[in-house]
Design a binder for these strands. Structure first.
Lengths: 228, 228
DNA sequence: CTGGCAAGAATCGTATACGATCTCTTCGCA
DNA sequence: TGCGAAGAGATCGTATACGATTCTTGCCAG
Protein backbone atom coordinates (compact mmCIF):
# COMPACT_ATOMS: atom_id res chain seq x y z
CA UNK A 1 0.00 0.00 0.00
CA UNK A 2 1.20 3.48 -0.84
CA UNK A 3 1.99 5.79 1.97
CA UNK A 4 -0.13 8.88 2.42
CA UNK A 5 2.78 10.96 1.35
CA UNK A 6 3.36 9.02 -1.80
CA UNK A 7 -0.30 9.35 -2.66
CA UNK A 8 -0.29 13.07 -2.14
CA UNK A 9 2.62 13.50 -4.51
CA UNK A 10 1.44 11.05 -7.14
CA UNK A 11 1.52 12.25 -10.75
CA UNK A 12 2.31 15.85 -9.94
CA UNK A 13 5.67 17.43 -10.50
CA UNK A 14 7.57 18.82 -7.56
CA UNK A 15 7.20 22.24 -9.07
CA UNK A 16 3.44 21.77 -9.06
CA UNK A 17 3.41 20.50 -5.51
CA UNK A 18 5.46 23.46 -4.35
CA UNK A 19 3.02 25.77 -6.11
CA UNK A 20 -0.02 24.21 -4.47
CA UNK A 21 1.64 24.03 -1.08
CA UNK A 22 2.49 27.72 -1.13
CA UNK A 23 -0.82 28.73 -2.65
CA UNK A 24 -2.72 26.92 0.09
CA UNK A 25 -0.69 28.50 2.84
CA UNK A 26 -1.13 31.98 1.41
CA UNK A 27 -4.86 31.52 0.79
CA UNK A 28 -5.35 30.22 4.36
CA UNK A 29 -3.17 33.03 5.65
CA UNK A 30 -0.90 30.56 7.37
CA UNK A 31 1.61 32.71 5.57
CA UNK A 32 0.66 36.31 6.24
CA UNK A 33 1.36 39.20 3.85
CA UNK A 34 4.96 40.29 4.18
CA UNK A 35 6.20 36.87 5.24
CA UNK A 36 9.49 36.14 3.60
CA UNK A 37 9.67 33.05 1.41
CA UNK A 38 13.21 31.72 1.62
CA UNK A 39 13.86 29.29 -1.18
CA UNK A 40 16.15 26.96 0.70
CA UNK A 41 13.90 26.73 3.71
CA UNK A 42 10.82 25.94 1.66
CA UNK A 43 12.76 23.42 -0.39
CA UNK A 44 13.81 21.67 2.80
CA UNK A 45 10.28 21.61 4.17
CA UNK A 46 9.09 19.97 1.00
CA UNK A 47 12.03 17.61 0.62
CA UNK A 48 13.09 18.95 -2.74
CA UNK A 49 15.76 21.20 -4.20
CA UNK A 50 15.32 24.91 -4.73
CA UNK A 51 14.76 24.65 -8.48
CA UNK A 52 11.09 23.59 -8.41
CA UNK A 53 10.42 26.07 -5.61
CA UNK A 54 11.75 28.91 -7.72
CA UNK A 55 9.40 28.00 -10.54
CA UNK A 56 6.45 27.85 -8.17
CA UNK A 57 7.29 31.30 -6.83
CA UNK A 58 7.52 32.68 -10.36
CA UNK A 59 3.99 31.52 -11.03
CA UNK A 60 2.71 32.98 -7.79
CA UNK A 61 4.47 36.21 -8.67
CA UNK A 62 2.73 36.36 -12.04
CA UNK A 63 -0.59 35.88 -10.22
CA UNK A 64 0.19 38.73 -7.85
CA UNK A 65 0.20 36.62 -4.69
CA UNK A 66 3.92 37.02 -4.16
CA UNK A 67 6.35 39.85 -4.74
CA UNK A 68 9.90 39.22 -5.68
CA UNK A 69 13.01 41.33 -5.58
CA UNK A 70 16.15 40.40 -7.37
CA UNK A 71 18.94 39.10 -5.12
CA UNK A 72 16.75 39.70 -2.11
CA UNK A 73 13.98 37.18 -2.36
CA UNK A 74 10.26 36.68 -2.29
CA UNK A 75 7.58 37.54 0.20
CA UNK A 76 3.84 37.12 0.38
CA UNK A 77 2.40 40.19 -1.34
CA UNK A 78 1.62 43.02 0.99
CA UNK A 79 -1.92 44.34 0.75
CA UNK A 80 -1.70 47.98 1.65
CA UNK A 81 -4.64 50.28 1.31
CA UNK A 82 -4.04 51.12 -2.34
CA UNK A 83 -3.63 47.49 -3.18
CA UNK A 84 -6.86 46.67 -1.37
CA UNK A 85 -8.72 49.40 -3.25
CA UNK A 86 -7.43 48.33 -6.65
CA UNK A 87 -8.12 44.67 -5.97
CA UNK A 88 -11.65 45.29 -4.73
CA UNK A 89 -12.33 47.58 -7.66
CA UNK A 90 -11.10 45.02 -10.15
CA UNK A 91 -12.93 42.25 -8.38
CA UNK A 92 -16.13 44.25 -8.60
CA UNK A 93 -15.70 44.51 -12.35
CA UNK A 94 -14.83 40.90 -13.10
CA UNK A 95 -17.11 39.34 -10.50
CA UNK A 96 -20.02 41.45 -11.67
CA UNK A 97 -19.42 40.35 -15.25
CA UNK A 98 -18.98 36.70 -14.24
CA UNK A 99 -22.16 36.79 -12.16
CA UNK A 100 -24.16 38.27 -15.02
CA UNK A 101 -22.89 35.62 -17.44
CA UNK A 102 -23.58 32.93 -14.88
CA UNK A 103 -27.06 34.09 -13.85
CA UNK A 104 -29.05 32.57 -16.67
CA UNK A 105 -27.33 29.22 -16.13
CA UNK A 106 -28.03 28.89 -12.42
CA UNK A 107 -30.29 26.01 -11.46
CA UNK A 108 -33.08 26.29 -8.89
CA UNK A 109 -30.83 24.22 -6.62
CA UNK A 110 -28.07 26.80 -6.97
CA UNK A 111 -30.45 29.59 -6.07
CA UNK A 112 -31.77 27.69 -3.06
CA UNK A 113 -28.26 27.11 -1.88
CA UNK A 114 -27.42 30.80 -2.22
CA UNK A 115 -30.59 31.67 -0.35
CA UNK A 116 -29.68 29.24 2.42
CA UNK A 117 -26.20 30.71 2.77
CA UNK A 118 -27.63 34.21 2.92
CA UNK A 119 -30.01 33.10 5.67
CA UNK A 120 -27.03 31.81 7.61
CA UNK A 121 -25.37 35.19 7.11
CA UNK A 122 -28.52 36.89 8.30
CA UNK A 123 -28.68 34.67 11.36
CA UNK A 124 -25.17 35.70 12.36
CA UNK A 125 -25.83 39.41 12.40
CA UNK A 126 -26.52 39.57 16.12
CA UNK A 127 -23.76 37.17 17.09
CA UNK A 128 -21.13 38.52 14.77
CA UNK A 129 -17.92 36.67 13.95
CA UNK A 130 -16.02 38.36 11.12
CA UNK A 131 -13.99 35.36 9.88
CA UNK A 132 -17.03 33.07 9.65
CA UNK A 133 -19.09 35.82 8.08
CA UNK A 134 -16.39 36.46 5.50
CA UNK A 135 -16.15 32.78 4.61
CA UNK A 136 -19.90 32.41 4.16
CA UNK A 137 -19.98 35.64 2.21
CA UNK A 138 -17.49 34.28 -0.25
CA UNK A 139 -19.49 31.08 -0.48
CA UNK A 140 -22.63 33.04 -1.35
CA UNK A 141 -20.93 34.87 -4.17
CA UNK A 142 -19.14 31.85 -5.52
CA UNK A 143 -22.46 30.06 -5.96
CA UNK A 144 -23.66 32.95 -8.07
CA UNK A 145 -20.68 33.30 -10.39
CA UNK A 146 -19.61 29.66 -10.60
CA UNK A 147 -21.61 28.88 -13.76
CA UNK A 148 -19.90 31.60 -15.75
CA UNK A 149 -18.84 29.81 -18.93
CA UNK A 150 -15.84 32.04 -19.55
CA UNK A 151 -12.84 30.41 -17.85
CA UNK A 152 -10.69 33.55 -18.08
CA UNK A 153 -13.20 35.60 -16.15
CA UNK A 154 -13.63 32.85 -13.59
CA UNK A 155 -9.91 32.69 -13.04
CA UNK A 156 -9.69 36.44 -12.57
CA UNK A 157 -12.44 36.28 -9.97
CA UNK A 158 -10.64 33.50 -8.13
CA UNK A 159 -7.38 35.40 -8.15
CA UNK A 160 -9.05 38.46 -6.72
CA UNK A 161 -10.62 36.51 -3.89
CA UNK A 162 -7.38 34.73 -3.16
CA UNK A 163 -5.47 37.97 -2.97
CA UNK A 164 -7.95 39.38 -0.50
CA UNK A 165 -7.99 36.20 1.56
CA UNK A 166 -4.49 37.04 2.69
CA UNK A 167 -5.88 39.83 4.84
CA UNK A 168 -5.99 38.96 8.47
CA UNK A 169 -9.25 40.79 8.99
CA UNK A 170 -11.90 41.35 6.40
CA UNK A 171 -13.73 44.59 5.86
CA UNK A 172 -16.47 43.23 8.10
CA UNK A 173 -14.11 43.28 11.05
CA UNK A 174 -13.54 47.00 10.50
CA UNK A 175 -17.09 47.92 9.58
CA UNK A 176 -19.57 45.54 11.21
CA UNK A 177 -22.50 47.69 10.09
CA UNK A 178 -21.66 46.84 6.53
CA UNK A 179 -22.61 43.22 7.20
CA UNK A 180 -26.28 44.04 7.66
CA UNK A 181 -26.49 46.06 4.45
CA UNK A 182 -24.58 43.35 2.68
CA UNK A 183 -27.12 40.68 3.54
CA UNK A 184 -29.94 42.89 2.26
CA UNK A 185 -28.08 43.50 -1.00
CA UNK A 186 -27.55 39.77 -1.39
CA UNK A 187 -31.30 39.31 -1.27
CA UNK A 188 -31.77 41.97 -3.91
CA UNK A 189 -29.26 40.32 -6.21
CA UNK A 190 -30.99 36.98 -5.73
CA UNK A 191 -34.31 38.54 -6.62
CA UNK A 192 -32.89 40.03 -9.80
CA UNK A 193 -31.57 36.66 -10.85
CA UNK A 194 -34.81 34.86 -9.99
CA UNK A 195 -36.76 37.45 -12.00
CA UNK A 196 -34.40 36.94 -14.91
CA UNK A 197 -33.59 40.61 -14.94
CA UNK A 198 -31.47 42.18 -17.65
CA UNK A 199 -27.91 40.84 -17.33
CA UNK A 200 -26.51 44.34 -17.21
CA UNK A 201 -28.72 45.12 -14.25
CA UNK A 202 -27.51 42.01 -12.45
CA UNK A 203 -23.93 42.89 -13.28
CA UNK A 204 -24.17 46.40 -11.93
CA UNK A 205 -25.94 45.20 -8.79
CA UNK A 206 -23.16 42.70 -8.09
CA UNK A 207 -20.48 45.23 -8.88
CA UNK A 208 -21.91 48.00 -6.76
CA UNK A 209 -22.50 45.57 -3.94
CA UNK A 210 -18.77 44.99 -3.83
CA UNK A 211 -17.87 48.61 -4.37
CA UNK A 212 -20.10 49.65 -1.49
CA UNK A 213 -18.14 47.33 0.76
CA UNK A 214 -15.01 49.06 -0.46
CA UNK A 215 -16.52 52.47 0.19
CA UNK A 216 -17.56 51.43 3.70
CA UNK A 217 -13.99 50.41 4.36
CA UNK A 218 -12.60 53.68 3.04
CA UNK A 219 -15.12 55.73 5.00
CA UNK A 220 -14.12 53.91 8.18
CA UNK A 221 -10.44 54.52 7.48
CA UNK A 222 -10.79 58.14 6.47
CA UNK A 223 -13.72 59.55 8.46
CA UNK A 224 -12.66 63.13 7.68
CA UNK A 225 -12.51 63.02 3.92
CA UNK A 226 -15.36 64.45 1.92
CA UNK A 227 -17.45 61.85 0.11
CA UNK A 228 -17.45 62.18 -3.66
CA UNK B 1 32.99 51.21 -23.72
CA UNK B 2 30.34 48.64 -23.12
CA UNK B 3 29.25 46.54 -26.02
CA UNK B 4 25.69 46.84 -27.23
CA UNK B 5 25.04 43.40 -25.92
CA UNK B 6 26.31 44.23 -22.48
CA UNK B 7 24.15 47.31 -22.42
CA UNK B 8 21.05 45.40 -23.41
CA UNK B 9 21.58 42.96 -20.59
CA UNK B 10 22.57 45.50 -17.96
CA UNK B 11 20.89 45.23 -14.60
CA UNK B 12 18.39 42.61 -15.63
CA UNK B 13 18.59 38.99 -14.65
CA UNK B 14 18.89 36.34 -17.31
CA UNK B 15 15.51 35.08 -16.29
CA UNK B 16 14.09 38.52 -16.96
CA UNK B 17 15.84 38.82 -20.29
CA UNK B 18 14.51 35.43 -21.36
CA UNK B 19 11.03 36.53 -20.37
CA UNK B 20 11.20 39.74 -22.37
CA UNK B 21 12.78 38.03 -25.34
CA UNK B 22 10.04 35.44 -25.52
CA UNK B 23 7.30 37.93 -24.78
CA UNK B 24 8.44 40.17 -27.62
CA UNK B 25 8.56 37.34 -30.09
CA UNK B 26 5.12 36.11 -29.15
CA UNK B 27 3.59 39.59 -29.19
CA UNK B 28 5.10 40.28 -32.63
CA UNK B 29 4.03 36.86 -33.78
CA UNK B 30 7.53 35.99 -34.78
CA UNK B 31 6.59 32.94 -32.79
CA UNK B 32 3.18 31.85 -34.00
CA UNK B 33 0.60 30.04 -31.86
CA UNK B 34 1.48 26.39 -31.60
CA UNK B 35 5.20 26.95 -32.04
CA UNK B 36 7.13 24.69 -29.74
CA UNK B 37 9.45 26.34 -27.25
CA UNK B 38 12.35 23.98 -26.64
CA UNK B 39 14.20 24.95 -23.51
CA UNK B 40 17.67 23.99 -24.64
CA UNK B 41 17.33 25.69 -28.00
CA UNK B 42 16.13 28.94 -26.48
CA UNK B 43 18.82 28.80 -23.84
CA UNK B 44 21.43 28.43 -26.56
CA UNK B 45 20.04 31.33 -28.56
CA UNK B 46 20.26 33.52 -25.51
CA UNK B 47 23.63 32.25 -24.33
CA UNK B 48 22.38 31.03 -20.98
CA UNK B 49 21.47 27.78 -19.30
CA UNK B 50 17.98 26.33 -19.27
CA UNK B 51 17.22 27.33 -15.70
CA UNK B 52 16.36 30.98 -16.35
CA UNK B 53 14.46 30.01 -19.48
CA UNK B 54 12.26 27.65 -17.49
CA UNK B 55 11.37 30.43 -15.08
CA UNK B 56 10.52 32.77 -17.93
CA UNK B 57 8.24 30.17 -19.44
CA UNK B 58 6.50 29.64 -16.12
CA UNK B 59 5.67 33.30 -16.00
CA UNK B 60 4.39 33.31 -19.56
CA UNK B 61 2.32 30.27 -18.72
CA UNK B 62 0.72 32.03 -15.76
CA UNK B 63 -0.14 34.90 -18.12
CA UNK B 64 -1.76 32.56 -20.59
CA UNK B 65 0.65 33.28 -23.45
CA UNK B 66 2.21 29.84 -23.32
CA UNK B 67 0.87 26.40 -22.59
CA UNK B 68 2.95 23.78 -20.93
CA UNK B 69 2.67 20.03 -20.65
CA UNK B 70 4.70 18.03 -18.23
CA UNK B 71 7.55 16.06 -19.76
CA UNK B 72 6.52 17.31 -23.18
CA UNK B 73 7.31 21.00 -23.20
CA UNK B 74 5.93 24.40 -23.90
CA UNK B 75 4.35 25.98 -26.93
CA UNK B 76 2.93 29.36 -27.77
CA UNK B 77 -0.71 29.22 -26.70
CA UNK B 78 -3.09 28.21 -29.43
CA UNK B 79 -5.98 30.59 -30.00
CA UNK B 80 -8.83 28.47 -31.24
CA UNK B 81 -12.30 29.87 -31.72
CA UNK B 82 -13.41 29.33 -28.13
CA UNK B 83 -10.27 30.90 -26.84
CA UNK B 84 -10.77 33.88 -29.12
CA UNK B 85 -14.34 34.30 -27.93
CA UNK B 86 -13.44 34.12 -24.25
CA UNK B 87 -10.52 36.47 -24.65
CA UNK B 88 -12.51 39.06 -26.58
CA UNK B 89 -15.36 38.80 -24.09
CA UNK B 90 -13.02 39.30 -21.16
CA UNK B 91 -11.19 42.08 -22.94
CA UNK B 92 -14.50 43.84 -23.54
CA UNK B 93 -15.19 43.75 -19.83
CA UNK B 94 -11.82 44.91 -18.55
CA UNK B 95 -11.09 47.35 -21.34
CA UNK B 96 -14.51 48.92 -20.95
CA UNK B 97 -13.93 49.35 -17.24
CA UNK B 98 -10.42 50.69 -17.75
CA UNK B 99 -11.63 53.14 -20.38
CA UNK B 100 -14.38 54.42 -18.12
CA UNK B 101 -11.96 54.92 -15.25
CA UNK B 102 -9.49 56.59 -17.59
CA UNK B 103 -11.95 58.87 -19.38
CA UNK B 104 -12.12 61.66 -16.82
CA UNK B 105 -8.32 61.81 -16.68
CA UNK B 106 -7.68 62.17 -20.40
CA UNK B 107 -6.09 65.43 -21.44
CA UNK B 108 -7.17 67.40 -24.50
CA UNK B 109 -3.92 66.26 -26.07
CA UNK B 110 -4.89 62.64 -25.50
CA UNK B 111 -8.25 63.20 -27.12
CA UNK B 112 -6.70 64.95 -30.10
CA UNK B 113 -4.31 62.09 -30.53
CA UNK B 114 -7.14 59.57 -30.45
CA UNK B 115 -9.06 61.66 -32.96
CA UNK B 116 -6.04 61.76 -35.24
CA UNK B 117 -5.57 58.02 -35.08
CA UNK B 118 -9.23 57.48 -35.87
CA UNK B 119 -8.90 59.78 -38.87
CA UNK B 120 -6.03 57.66 -40.09
CA UNK B 121 -8.23 54.60 -39.65
CA UNK B 122 -10.97 56.32 -41.57
CA UNK B 123 -8.60 57.21 -44.36
CA UNK B 124 -7.61 53.59 -44.78
CA UNK B 125 -11.10 52.29 -45.34
CA UNK B 126 -10.89 52.39 -49.11
CA UNK B 127 -7.35 51.11 -49.29
CA UNK B 128 -7.66 48.47 -46.67
CA UNK B 129 -4.69 46.74 -45.08
CA UNK B 130 -5.76 44.55 -42.15
CA UNK B 131 -2.44 44.44 -40.23
CA UNK B 132 -1.95 48.21 -40.32
CA UNK B 133 -5.59 48.79 -39.48
CA UNK B 134 -5.34 46.43 -36.52
CA UNK B 135 -2.21 48.15 -35.22
CA UNK B 136 -3.78 51.61 -35.45
CA UNK B 137 -6.96 50.28 -33.89
CA UNK B 138 -5.03 49.08 -30.87
CA UNK B 139 -3.27 52.43 -30.69
CA UNK B 140 -6.62 54.24 -30.64
CA UNK B 141 -7.91 52.18 -27.76
CA UNK B 142 -4.71 52.30 -25.78
CA UNK B 143 -4.84 56.09 -25.78
CA UNK B 144 -8.29 55.91 -24.25
CA UNK B 145 -7.58 53.43 -21.47
CA UNK B 146 -3.99 54.37 -20.67
CA UNK B 147 -4.88 56.82 -17.89
CA UNK B 148 -6.75 54.19 -15.90
CA UNK B 149 -5.30 54.54 -12.40
CA UNK B 150 -5.91 50.91 -11.46
CA UNK B 151 -2.76 48.97 -12.40
CA UNK B 152 -4.46 45.59 -12.10
CA UNK B 153 -7.07 46.50 -14.66
CA UNK B 154 -4.44 47.95 -16.96
CA UNK B 155 -2.41 44.78 -16.79
CA UNK B 156 -5.44 42.67 -17.60
CA UNK B 157 -6.13 44.83 -20.64
CA UNK B 158 -2.56 44.48 -21.82
CA UNK B 159 -2.62 40.73 -21.38
CA UNK B 160 -5.78 40.46 -23.40
CA UNK B 161 -4.34 42.48 -26.26
CA UNK B 162 -1.11 40.52 -26.18
CA UNK B 163 -2.94 37.24 -26.35
CA UNK B 164 -4.88 38.38 -29.38
CA UNK B 165 -1.82 39.80 -31.06
CA UNK B 166 -0.63 36.27 -31.62
CA UNK B 167 -3.29 35.79 -34.27
CA UNK B 168 -1.93 35.92 -37.76
CA UNK B 169 -4.99 37.73 -39.07
CA UNK B 170 -7.21 40.01 -37.10
CA UNK B 171 -10.97 40.04 -37.26
CA UNK B 172 -10.71 42.82 -39.80
CA UNK B 173 -9.08 40.45 -42.23
CA UNK B 174 -12.10 38.15 -42.00
CA UNK B 175 -14.76 40.83 -41.86
CA UNK B 176 -13.61 43.97 -43.65
CA UNK B 177 -17.05 45.53 -43.35
CA UNK B 178 -16.58 45.64 -39.60
CA UNK B 179 -13.80 48.19 -40.05
CA UNK B 180 -16.19 50.88 -41.29
CA UNK B 181 -18.61 50.39 -38.40
CA UNK B 182 -15.68 50.31 -36.03
CA UNK B 183 -14.44 53.74 -37.07
CA UNK B 184 -17.91 55.19 -36.59
CA UNK B 185 -18.16 53.66 -33.12
CA UNK B 186 -14.78 55.11 -32.23
CA UNK B 187 -16.13 58.56 -33.03
CA UNK B 188 -19.14 57.91 -30.80
CA UNK B 189 -16.94 56.82 -27.91
CA UNK B 190 -14.79 59.93 -28.35
CA UNK B 191 -17.90 62.10 -28.27
CA UNK B 192 -19.09 60.48 -25.06
CA UNK B 193 -15.75 61.14 -23.41
CA UNK B 194 -15.60 64.74 -24.68
CA UNK B 195 -19.11 65.33 -23.35
CA UNK B 196 -18.09 63.88 -19.99
CA UNK B 197 -20.86 61.35 -20.22
CA UNK B 198 -21.71 59.05 -17.35
CA UNK B 199 -18.80 56.62 -16.87
CA UNK B 200 -21.13 53.65 -17.09
CA UNK B 201 -22.30 54.83 -20.47
CA UNK B 202 -18.71 55.15 -21.66
CA UNK B 203 -17.91 51.74 -20.27
CA UNK B 204 -20.78 50.04 -22.02
CA UNK B 205 -20.04 51.81 -25.28
CA UNK B 206 -16.43 50.60 -25.18
CA UNK B 207 -17.47 47.11 -24.18
CA UNK B 208 -20.13 46.73 -26.81
CA UNK B 209 -17.81 48.14 -29.42
CA UNK B 210 -15.50 45.21 -28.75
CA UNK B 211 -18.28 42.69 -28.45
CA UNK B 212 -19.70 43.75 -31.78
CA UNK B 213 -16.37 42.99 -33.38
CA UNK B 214 -16.58 39.57 -31.78
CA UNK B 215 -20.12 39.09 -33.08
CA UNK B 216 -19.08 40.11 -36.56
CA UNK B 217 -16.37 37.49 -36.45
CA UNK B 218 -18.75 34.80 -35.25
CA UNK B 219 -21.37 35.73 -37.84
CA UNK B 220 -18.75 35.42 -40.57
CA UNK B 221 -17.63 32.06 -39.26
CA UNK B 222 -21.10 30.65 -38.73
CA UNK B 223 -23.35 32.25 -41.34
CA UNK B 224 -26.07 29.65 -40.75
CA UNK B 225 -26.59 30.03 -37.04
CA UNK B 226 -29.57 31.99 -35.80
CA UNK B 227 -28.67 35.30 -34.17
CA UNK B 228 -29.61 35.55 -30.51
C1' DC C 1 1.58 -4.55 -46.53
C1' DT C 2 0.57 -3.41 -41.81
C1' DG C 3 0.72 -3.27 -36.83
C1' DG C 4 3.44 -3.40 -32.89
C1' DC C 5 7.61 -3.53 -30.33
C1' DA C 6 12.22 -2.06 -29.23
C1' DA C 7 16.17 0.82 -29.35
C1' DG C 8 17.92 5.33 -29.80
C1' DA C 9 17.37 10.34 -29.78
C1' DA C 10 15.36 14.32 -28.01
C1' DT C 11 13.71 16.70 -24.30
C1' DC C 12 12.28 17.41 -19.75
C1' DG C 13 12.76 17.43 -14.29
C1' DT C 14 15.52 18.04 -10.59
C1' DA C 15 19.81 17.83 -7.66
C1' DT C 16 24.02 19.72 -6.68
C1' DA C 17 27.57 23.17 -6.83
C1' DC C 18 29.50 27.57 -6.56
C1' DG C 19 30.13 32.41 -7.60
C1' DA C 20 27.51 36.83 -6.87
C1' DT C 21 24.90 39.91 -4.17
C1' DC C 22 22.83 41.53 -0.24
C1' DT C 23 22.28 42.20 4.83
C1' DC C 24 23.65 42.49 9.33
C1' DT C 25 27.08 42.64 12.74
C1' DT C 26 31.23 44.22 14.49
C1' DC C 27 35.07 46.99 14.98
C1' DG C 28 37.85 51.12 14.55
C1' DC C 29 38.22 55.88 14.38
C1' DA C 30 36.70 60.63 14.73
C1' DT D 1 28.95 58.29 21.26
C1' DG D 2 28.11 58.05 16.45
C1' DC D 3 29.33 56.87 11.89
C1' DG D 4 31.48 54.32 8.34
C1' DA D 5 34.08 50.40 6.62
C1' DA D 6 35.09 45.59 6.64
C1' DG D 7 33.89 41.00 7.09
C1' DA D 8 30.89 37.02 7.91
C1' DG D 9 26.73 34.80 7.08
C1' DA D 10 22.61 34.28 4.53
C1' DT D 11 20.46 34.01 0.34
C1' DC D 12 20.04 34.36 -4.42
C1' DG D 13 21.30 33.33 -9.68
C1' DT D 14 22.80 30.25 -12.81
C1' DA D 15 25.66 26.40 -14.80
C1' DT D 16 26.29 21.74 -15.13
C1' DA D 17 25.05 16.96 -14.67
C1' DC D 18 22.24 13.06 -15.05
C1' DG D 19 18.17 10.16 -14.43
C1' DA D 20 13.30 10.00 -16.22
C1' DT D 21 9.94 10.49 -19.68
C1' DT D 22 8.39 10.98 -24.22
C1' DC D 23 8.91 10.90 -29.13
C1' DT D 24 10.82 8.82 -33.41
C1' DT D 25 12.42 5.46 -36.28
C1' DG D 26 13.08 1.17 -38.12
C1' DC D 27 12.76 -3.74 -37.87
C1' DC D 28 10.24 -7.97 -37.47
C1' DA D 29 6.23 -10.90 -37.28
C1' DG D 30 1.82 -11.74 -38.81
Amino acid sequence: MMSVDALSSADRSKSQRAYEWLHDRIANHDYAPGRRLVLGTIANSLGMSVVPVREAIRRLEAEGLVTFERNVGAQVALVDEDEYVFTMQTLGVVEGAATALSAALLTPTDLDRAELVNQQLSGMLDDFDPPTFTALNQQFHSVLYQRCPNPHLLELVHRGWTRLSGLRDSTFAFVPQRARDSVAEHAEILDLIRDQADPTEIELAARHHRWRTLEAFLAARHPDSVPA
